[in-house]
Design a protein around this nucleic acid. Sequence first.
DNA 1: ATATTTATCCATCAAATGTTGGAAGCAATG
DNA 2: CATTGCTTCCAACATTTGATGGATAAATAT
Lengths: 211, 211
Amino acid sequence: MVSTLEKARQDPSSMKGKILASARKVFGEYGYHGTTTRMIAKDVGIDISTLYYHWGEKRDLYESVVMDLNDEIRQKLLEIESKVKGKSLTTRLEIAIDVMCDYLFSNPEVSNFILFLYFGKTRGDSSLNFKVSEYISNIAIAMGLALDKKYIPVKAKASVIAVWNSVLNFISGEDFFRPMLDIGHDEYIVVVKDTLKFILIPAFTQERNRS
Amino acid sequence: MVSTLEKARQDPSSMKGKILASARKVFGEYGYHGTTTRMIAKDVGIDISTLYYHWGEKRDLYESVVMDLNDEIRQKLLEIESKVKGKSLTTRLEIAIDVMCDYLFSNPEVSNFILFLYFGKTRGDSSLNFKVSEYISNIAIAMGLALDKKYIPVKAKASVIAVWNSVLNFISGEDFFRPMLDIGHDEYIVVVKDTLKFILIPAFTQERNRS
DNA sequence: ATATTTATCCATCAAATGTTGGAAGCAATG
DNA sequence: CATTGCTTCCAACATTTGATGGATAAATAT
């Protein structure tokens, strides 16, 4: 399963690849239960049987999307990790925010999909395990919030989670929030980046002397 | 519709009230499409026909939940507004975070429901308008982030949105995030409040001198 | 006590949805 | 050309799901 999945990723022009891309998109918009196999097939432009021929059950297709996303995000985080090496904490945060925002704004269905995964239950089968856990730890280390790889403070992890969530929310909630701000898409991107930096950088860079 | 809705809120022991509460819970867990009318009926402990007798179509029930939540949240925000009056900015933020966290941790289905509303599309009919817009502005004013009620800076609004989202995410994502932190529920609440304060208070209280 | 309204359930329907079988196209191979 | 294997579509099936009609009981009114 994994090998065929990777093949589909490597060749987005193949039918399996096209289906996977559409599935990601539609699942991301409507969630698991909100998506019908017919919707995905229609998005690809094929008959529903063809979809089943390539991917089997709906659940299997869904899980393939999860694994696919897992890989893609791990790669993105590795990219960030290498880019921030040796920089100051402020610069590290700025780079991380910029790279993640650029990536997610270019692939908005990604953050939507992940949020569904976090907060929505799927009837019947137990929820999938999206391996954020290791990501969080890696980010904490890359950001310099944890010194010892063995022991990462709860506060550091929680902070990373908060940041990660903020990013996802701004991207996924654009349709909801942008009208409130009464600005265009491009300006929205700038505002999001600025706001994230405005909120996050002081927290992590200043000395804390609070109760 | 509104009057009957309010009646149901006022009397949670009535059948309409019990259905509304169950609907809120199940819709919050599984989203609109993930929820079946039979699931709600089962949660209440009644036959599906009885549910339809009281609330009519699924969509109507769903919209009633939205309106119900709207009222409840508006009330919560008014409560916060009165509590923070005259306090320092730091204290205002602390109070707001505490009150909202306490409320949402006691009613976890609320934040889940709202997140579905933000990020999930529902097939067919257009999305409901959850009136966050006015909330955001009111909070910005109550927090002292905006001086002029007529003109609220984009940055202030965006900041409030970020805060609001962070709270919702931590509460809704407890099942997902708490295992990463390897702590219990009560400690999780403490960590969430601390993390939010840790991140948010410096951002809003310090003088900013950034590019 | 009788009539009327209200509330609940059982059985059922129609549409939507996940899934499959089989026929038909199509390319490569012998 | 015939055969084989791969791909696609049409049609259909079984289940789920939103929704309703009608019988029955419980409450209320007259």
